[in-house]
């Protein structure tokens, strides 16, 4: 007991120091460690989350680029096919048009030739008619002074018959 007293041990002081430290312990735990550790954890989570997000974004970007490449490739193929089809179609249309034109031309030529032949015939007929009229007129005028009216008539009728006969045969 003497030894303890020499060292200045006092139960009241000892109790006070124990209570004091327990209060300090609580204050530090409540107002220092807890908020700091929670902020550190939050920050760590935030950094981890951001890194993860960045990694995911990078992955998505790579995938998008890959998709873009594939889409471009496919589009290029499609475009090439469309161009090829268009070329083929154009050639086909050109061929069809050519064929159609050729047929139309042939038809036009054949119809034209028929018309020309018909018109030539009509012209010939008209010429023949004109020539007949001219011949009759010429005969009338030539016979006016030479023959009498009766003879003229007989002669003209015979001539007309002959001309008509020629016309009919030629038709």
């Amino acid at each position: 007991m003497e030894l303890i007293k020499n060292f200045g041990l006092d139960p009241l002081l000892l109790g006070a120091q124990i209570i004091n430290f327990l209060i300090i312990f609580y204050i530090l735990k409540r107002f220092a460690y807890k908020p700091v550790l929670s902020v550190l954890k939050k920050r760590e989570d935030l950094i981890k989350g951001s890194l993860k997000q960045a990694e995911e974004s990078k992955k998505i970007l790579e995938e998008t680029l890959e998709k873009e490449k594939t889409i471009l490739k496919n589009t290029q193929k499609k475009a090439e096919k469309i161009i090829e089809d268009a070329k083929n179609r154009t050639q086909e249309i050109a061929r069809e048009t050519e064929e159609k034109t050729r047929k139309q031309t042939e038809y036009m030529i054949s119809t034209g030739l028929g018309k020309i032949a018909q018109e030539s015939k009509e012209l010939e007929k008209r010429i023949a008619l004109k020539v007949s009229k001219l011949a009759i007129e010429f005969l009338q005028k030539s016979m006016q002074d030479v023959f009498g009216e009766k003879e003229q008539k007989q002669f003209l009728d015979a001539a007309l018959k002959k001309i008509k006969k020629v016309d009919w045969y030629e038709d």
């Binding site: 300090i24 204050i27 530090l28 409540r30 107002f31 220092a32 460690y33 908020p35 700091v36 550790l37 902020v39 550190l40 939050k42 920050r43 935030l46």
Partner: peptide
């Protein structure tokens, strides 16, 4: 200790200042 703890708890932020930074490093 009380003053330091209360100042820290009152001003704690996700983006730390000089004081918070020092305390965070030590802790």
């Amino acid at each position: 200790i009380f003053a330091a703890s209360f100042v820290l708890a009152k001003n704690i932020k996700l983006v730390p200042g000089l004081y918070q930074n020092i305390v965070e490093i030590i802790i």
